[in-house]
Design a protein around this nucleic acid. Structure first.
Lengths: 203, 203
DNA sequence: GTCTATATTTGGATAGAC
DNA sequence: GTCTATCCAAATATAGAC
């Protein structure tokens, strides 16, 4: 049964796994189907029983990028009617979690690698990564303003300011970890961001 | 003389110019020496009279990335002893200028394209792009704190918060312009950032 | 310094046997 | 579904004539 389960791990899935790792480390172009096949343990030509071509492999892999990322946060943030500093703190901790999560990190790296070579990714980056976060955050800030918890202003601007720092930290962490360097200097950066930002907007 | 000047534009320089454009649009790997040569108007093999190989061409091009960027700002910012909102405003306007400057934009795009495929670039990104800016900004904030112009806190954190948004705007602008899309929505984002940030830190 | 010709490698993809 | 064999295209790089 165990052996079966292992074998049942579809060759197709194994291909996608190997491909996503390679793509996220060397990019699409520098990854050859030969290498992918080698890792899976099959010959290169056998790949074509599962995928039409290399591009289709990438397409399947890239779907993952925007599957995981922030859906978790949305739920847990909306359920309890969080507000004030707790709201931005929780949001940030979710973001931090994803930043250091192996699978999310891999997909983020892939996104960054291919961002300027793939228009579709760029569009999704704006719509899925950016706009969704802006929406979620600005709604939160809007409520806080109504309750006079924070100073008044444009909630969208606030959201923009808030998310940009999160992104920047994430990028830096990703770069450091890519070179297996220490991220100690950035370990508490997320928390510091929350503190600084709350001081900046609180009433 | 005019003809001469035109011809004197070293083939070498023409190669670098063509290469930097192609690299910044398609990345290192997707750019072939054939295409470079074609644009210059010579045969591919003639390139090797000027450069040892493709990598050397890239190396020369990539030097440009960290040549231009912030040295301008440093001077003009230090000369007058700027402080308060004017300081961050001037700094930001310099940053905005570079964001929309054609040559700088090209180099920034190249940086972003190759960032995750080139360890040397990653290191320079941290040391030249990030650390230098943090240093410059935190020194400014430090002085402002001493003069009680802004609330007290860690100047490095403040600098980090400030630069991260600038970077994020620049990235977004670069992505939009890469696809020849309008950046109207981001046109005043830099100014809004200055306003928001000053409200956040002023005493 | 540039050209033509060519060597060499690598990588994507297909055909056909098992 | 996987294998071997093969094809084809693209790309880097070198050799040698002009």
């Amino acid at each position: 049964m165990n052996k079966d389960t292992k074998k049942r791990k579809n060759t197709k899935e194994l291909i996608l796994k190997a491909a996503s790792t390679l793509f996220s480390e060397h990019g699409y172009r520098a990854t050859s189907v030969r290498t992918i096949a080698q890792i899976v343990g099959i010959k290169q030509s056998a790949l074509y029983n599962h995928f039409k071509n290399k591009e289709e492999i990438f397409f399947e892999v890239s779907k993952e990028i925007f599957n995981t990322p922030f859906s978790i946060a949305t739920d847990s943030l909306n359920k309890e009617s969080l507000t004030g500093k707790v709201f931005i703190h929780k949001f940030t901790m979710q973001y931090k979690l994803l930043t250091f999560d192996k699978a999310s990190e891999k997909m983020f790296r892939l996104l960054m690698i291919e961002l300027l070579q793939n228009e579709g990714l760029r569009e999704q980056f704006i719509s899925e990564f950016h706009n969704k976060n802006i929406k979620m955050l600005s709604e939160g800030f809007f409520v806080m303003m109504q309750n006079s918890l924070i100073r008044s202003g444009d909630p969208m601007i606030m959201a923009y300011e808030f998310i940009s720092t999160l992104f920047y930290i994430r990028l830096q962490v990703t770069l450091l970890r890519f070179d297996a360097k220490s991220t100690d200097a950035l370990a508490t950066q997320f928390e510091k961001h929350v503190d600084f930002f709350w001081e900046s907007i609180k009433n």
